[in-house]
């Protein structure tokens, strides 16, 4: 069972908030930890958007209250804190969290988080998405990926990971599409049975449909 770590999402924009909320639980397998997003101070890691006007205040607050501070920025350097460069990438985030975790810098200065306790509740693969309604024609025209994401969810809910593998899109892109579809009210989060993810049927759609898609020049 992965050990629990908390990541405080501070002054981030709503879309990045959602992306990180989706990404973090997926990093368990790559980091050996359970990274849980939180809004509470005293987290093991705090993510601060340095590009926003309130970046300096959020940074100072995180330094006071959280174990390790990561600056999210479009620049290559975040000064004296760890840097996570925009655009958000799951691989980069996982690498950074592994580095931080390995350095032992994750203990919050105030209250300990009980970081060696196992995660309570269901496994993370039980969180998924279901289709609520198809987007409008204009939206589908403008965002061809939306059609494929909705098509993947039309018969049953799937996890982010499963949708990503089904479509052959990277997790970041898939998380972005799902977050935007969620914002449009087309998909919503739902619990799915854990065995649902990672079954043989979740592999990328190859073969006939890919050939047909290629032949018709769609997607």
């Amino acid at each position: 069972m992965p050990m629990k770590r908390t990541v405080r999402l501070t002054n981030l924009a709503a879309s990045e908030w959602m992306q990180l909320e989706l990404m973090l639980p997926l990093l368990d397998r790559g980091t050996g930890r359970s990274w849980q997003p939180t809004e509470e101070a005293g987290a093991d890691v705090a993510l601060v958007d340095l590009d926003r006007p309130d970046g300096p205040e959020a940074l100072a607050d995180a330094r006071r209250h959280d174990g390790c501070v990561v600056g999210l920025t479009a620049a290559c350097d975040a000064g004296d804190v760890h840097c996570l460069q925009r655009p958000l990438r799951a691989a980069a985030l996982a690498q950074l969290l592994r580095t931080i975790d390995g350095s032992g810098a994750t203990a919050a200065p105030h209250e300990p988080t009980g970081d060696e306790s196992p995660i309570p509740g269901p496994a993370i693969d039980t969180m998924g998405y279901r289709l609520v309604r198809w987007p409008s024609t204009d939206t589908m025209r403008a965002e061809p990926d939306f059609l494929r994401v909705c098509g993947a969810l039309v018969r049953r809910p799937r996890s982010l990971d499963a949708v990503s593998r089904h479509l052959g899109l990277d997790v970041d892109t898939t998380a972005d599409r799902l977050a935007r579809l969620e914002g449009l009210g087309s998909v919503e989060r739902t619990a799915i049975p854990a065995p649902e993810a990672g079954t043989p049927g979740e592999e990328t759609a190859q073969g006939l449909m890919a050939r047909l898609r290629n032949r018709l020049g769609v997607g």
């Binding site: 059609l147 098509g151 039309v154 089904h166 979740e202 759609a205 898609r213 018709l216 769609v218 997607g219």
Partner: peptide
């Protein structure tokens, strides 16, 4: 017409994944 086909293929794609469903 291609948009219609894209939609119908997107719905058939999961069937292609689920072996034997097509």
């Amino acid at each position: 017409v291609r948009l219609l086909m894209e939609a119908v293929i997107s719905m058939a794609e999961p069937l292609a994944d689920d072996q034997g469903a097509l």
